[in-house]
Design a protein around this nucleic acid. Structure first.
Length: 807
DNA sequence: GGCATGCATGGAT
DNA sequence: CATCCATGCATGC
């Protein structure tokens, strides 16, 4: 049943989801936007929302979205659909076992089904020809881990192996696209930016640690790690294989999601599983992948700030938006602590290699894993990130330490964990060490003497002169200081967490009753809703450790701690697909700068950290009014999020500086849309700037304004009795002529705030809507992806530009 | 005597 | 059992 013919023929008239496991009727107005792969007949498979989302997210991953999780309805939406489409993907087992397309693994000889999309994740192509099933590359990787994708993913396998934390499991989803999904699978290579990330770094760095991580010896993988002998990493053949796979987007075969549960020896089994573990408040990042030329598309990087549980806005970390190969994520930084220069890093990133082969093998004890909360990160970033640091900066939590009595005492010596010091602080060879400048959250610089003294053939690292800082922070024994690094400056930032509140901040739910499954008022709302519809039982669950334990959650799903900033990487097309136009809208073709855009009218909101966030209420409300048939309306939350995500795109890596940059703008564009943050700060184009982009923006704005007015007038004339329900209050809606490229005056700011508010209101409810409308687990369709569409045929990659009307 | 510094010790991991 | 590290303590100013 692996042939497309076995799938129901797309019946546009009936508008039934092409996915045989779904067969959900497709609303007419949605159908045109929910296209899947090209069928042999030349038609395009039409999918329902869920399936199509599952489909599109498997496209090559370039777009980077970061958002708080799970507060981001976008994320919720995203995963709901992912899950709905794929999480139960046992496609091969279910559908394809008897079909053709089987090949033998070149390594083990095992039969591997290569004929279906879903199975594409189960094998990899070898450079020398042939294929190799997942477990085989993994074995290779075990001995040749110095390759970023493999190493990362390999490490990910072990993250949940720790017994002191519940595993976050993630059921890998089936692969709709052979090559594409392999890349897309990278998209799901999540790391916890702070905690997990930290651990990934160290756990991988230190082979011996993995034994600990693989505590319990649940899997034989632990034995593999014992083979992490340095000399074996020189196995260039293996490395090359791994790297090539990675570079060619095939690293998905190495996906630990698959290997971890390698007990499933059937390479076709797509129910591969990966267990993730996320510490509270750690951030999750979907790992950047190198992209091949053909699938390299616009890189969008955006991280959003969402209100933390305590209502404090979390920092928005806008990461770089350069070419994919240039991206140095905090994760990569984490993997490459301070001892690698950017050039090295970039080279290695480009080469798909990590620094682990050059980095001293160290391991942090769990108690030093950074558990910096978003609030703390905000605390740091709030003062530093957007002001002191460069736009492309990112904050990487390094480690933390609970102050001992002596640390907090008047002696002024803060004993540093040896491995932390060696990993993240400058290398010092003399006991005298060197002065180390550390900024606190308020931006104040402190200069400590970073030094050591010999101790039992070892070293004991201390920071001297910390007393003033400790006192300034009013810290005492039991409090925790956190060290983070702002990259790429490498600036050290010191935060703190008071003992009295640290636990709550770290994991607000750990103090809840283990039987308390009621979600926290904010962060877990998505979770709870998803749980209601059953989704979390498979993919999206955001339990606390304790809760997870209490609930006996051991499902093969992704458990992600809430509130964790997350970074997704999507292709531009994926982003576009996420931009759902108003149901009744029809696109208009607009040519801008020589490019044709299929334009849906969506009010674009410019928002940065406030994106989707209501710091006060935490949970955002959706605006209730939605004008029926209103073409010109605020995009719904997802659209807005996507828009904002898109706008986060920046070739200039102005990642930390939120701007209203429009994706259509070219690299280096300095028009107001690109450079003007919502705050109004920064360079401005002159009111009468005649640069191409400004003119374009103005032109587009005028066009849309006129169109909007026209529609409104038409609507009013058609529905005189019906109350006009503009999505935006009039004062928020852009006024004709107000879209002056340089109009960033107070009125604009007011409008911006209102718009942001509306966005915020929109976003959360949108998530709720998607949650509530998400299929129940029983209704969750599996998508029959027994087709291997060629990418060039894929209709989804057709640019479907969405007009983003700057406010 | 008070304080800073550097080393040693021993419990914890 | 080795290592880490919190802290005690000796020494010098």
């Amino acid at each position: 049943m692996s042939s497309p013919s076995s799938a129901p023929v797309a019946a546009p008239a009936a508008k039934i989801c092409f996915n045989t496991q779904c067969k959900e009727s497709i609303a007419d107005h949605i159908a045109p936007r929910r296209r899947g792969w090209r069928l042999r007949s030349g038609e395009i498979a039409e999918l329902c929302d869920r399936c199509s989302m599952g489909w599109i997210i498997r496209d090559s991953s370039v777009l980077v979205l970061r958002f708080g999780f799970p507060k981001s309805p976008f994320f919720s939406f995203f995963f709901c659909h992912c899950r709905s489409s794929f999480e139960q993907g046992t496609f091969c087992e279910t559908f394809h076992s008897n079909d053709s397309g089987w090949r033998n693994c070149e390594t083990c000889g095992k039969r591997v089904h290569c004929g279906c999309i879903a199975s594409a994740q189960s094998y990899g192509f070898l450079d020398a020809g042939g294929i190799e099933c997942i477990p085989c590359p993994r074995k290779s990787l075990a001995t040749a881990p110095n390759q970023i994708s493999s190493s990362l993913m390999f490490m990910q396998q072990h993250v949940p192996e720790r017994r002191d934390s519940p595993a976050k499991t993630w059921r890998s989803m089936a692969n709709p696209l052979s090559g594409q999904w392999r890349q897309a699978s990278h998209m799901w290579n999540m790391t916890m930016q702070s905690d997990l990330q930290q651990r990934l770094s160290y756990e991988f760095d230190r082979p011996s640690s993995i034994e600990k991580l693989a505590h319990g010896g649940r899997h034989s993988i632990a034995t593999h790690e014992k083979k992490f002998e340095p000399e074996r990493k020189t196995n260039t053949d293996l490395n090359n294989i791994s790297r090539d796979k990675y570079i060619h987007g095939n690293a998905g075969e190495n996906d630990p999601m698959s290997t971890r549960k390698s007990v499933s020896t059937d390479p076709c089994s797509t129910s591969s599983i990966v267990n993730f573990e996320a510490k509270p408040n750690s951030s999750i990042k979907l790992q950047q992948l190198p992209v091949t030329k053909e699938n390299s598309s616009i890189l969008i990087s955006l991280s959003a700030s969402f209100p933390s549980s305590n209502g404090v806005k979390e920092p928005m970390k806008l990461s770089s938006n350069q070419s994919p190969s240039q991206i140095t994520t905090p994760l990569s930084k984490q993997f490459y602590p301070q001892r690698m220069n950017e050039a090295e890093l970039q080279v290695q990133m480009r080469n798909g290699r990590t620094r682990v082969d050059a980095y001293p093998r160290t391991q942090l004890l769990p108690r030093y894993w950074p558990r910096i909360t978003n609030q703390e990160l905000q605390q740091i970033s709030g003062e530093l990130y957007l002001t002191v640091t460069s736009p492309q900066s990112s904050i990487t939590p390094l480690f933390e330490k609970m102050l001992s009595a002596s640390d907090a005492g008047r002696i002024g010596r803060l004993v540093l964990p040896k491995k932390c010091a060696e990993a993240y602080f400058p290398t010092i060879s003399q006991p005298e060490g060197l002065p180390l400048k550390v900024q606190d959250a308020s931006g104040k610089d402190w200069i400590f003497q970073f030094r050591f003294w010999p101790n039992n053939n070892s070293r004991m690292y201390v920071l001297e002169g910390v007393t003033p800082c400790i006192q300034a922070m009013q810290l005492q024994a039991g409090d925790t200081v956190t060290f983070s690094r702002i990259d790429p400056e490498g600036k050290l930032v010191m935060g703190f967490r008071k003992a009295s509140s640290s636990s709550n901040e770290q994991d607000p739910e750990t103090h809840k009753s283990s039987t308390d499954i009621s979600p926290p008022p904010e962060a877990d709302q998505i979770t709870s809703l998803i749980q209601k519809d059953g989704s979390t039982s498979k993919l999206l669950q955001v339990p606390s450790k304790r809760k997870a334990k209490a609930l006996g959650l051991k499902s093969n799903c992704l458990h992600i701690e809430n509130e964790e900033p997350m970074e997704l990487k999507l292709t531009w097309e994926e982003a576009q697909m996420l931009l759902c136009p108003p149901p009744n809208s029809s696109p208009s073709i607009v040519v801008i700068e020589g490019l044709e855009f299929e334009e849906y009218e969506i009010i674009f909101f410019c928002s940065r950290v406030e994106f989707g966030a209501d710091s006060k209420h935490g949970i955002l409300k959706k605006r209730k009014a939605k004008a029926k048939g209103e073409n010109v309306e605020v995009s719904d939350g997802l659209d807005t999020l996507a828009n904002l995500a898109i706008l986060g795109y920046s070739e200039n890596r102005q990642s930390s500086q939120p701007t209203t940059r429009h994706p259509r703008h070219k690299p280096g564009c300095t028009c107001i849309v690109c450079i003007q943050p919502p705050s109004g700060k920064g360079p401005k184009h002159k009111p009468h700037c005649t640069c191409n982009v400004c003119l374009t923006v103005k032109r587009r704005f005028r066009t849309l304004e006129l169109r909007r007015e026209k529609r409104q007038s038409e609507k009013e004339s058609e529905m005189p009795g019906k109350q006009q329900s503009p999505i935006l209050p009039p004062e928020v809606l852009p006024q004709p002529g107000s879209m002056d490229a340089a109009s960033t005056g107070p009125s604009d700011e007011v409008a911006t705030q209102k718009v942001d508010k509306l966005i915020a209101d929109t976003v959360v409810d949108e998530a709720s809507e998607h949650r509530t409308t998400s299929a129940s687990p029983h209704k969750t369709p599996q998508i029959d992806l027994n087709i291997q569409p060629e990418r060039e045929e894929e209709p989804l990659v057709q640019p479907q530009a969405v007009s983003l009307v700057p406010y």
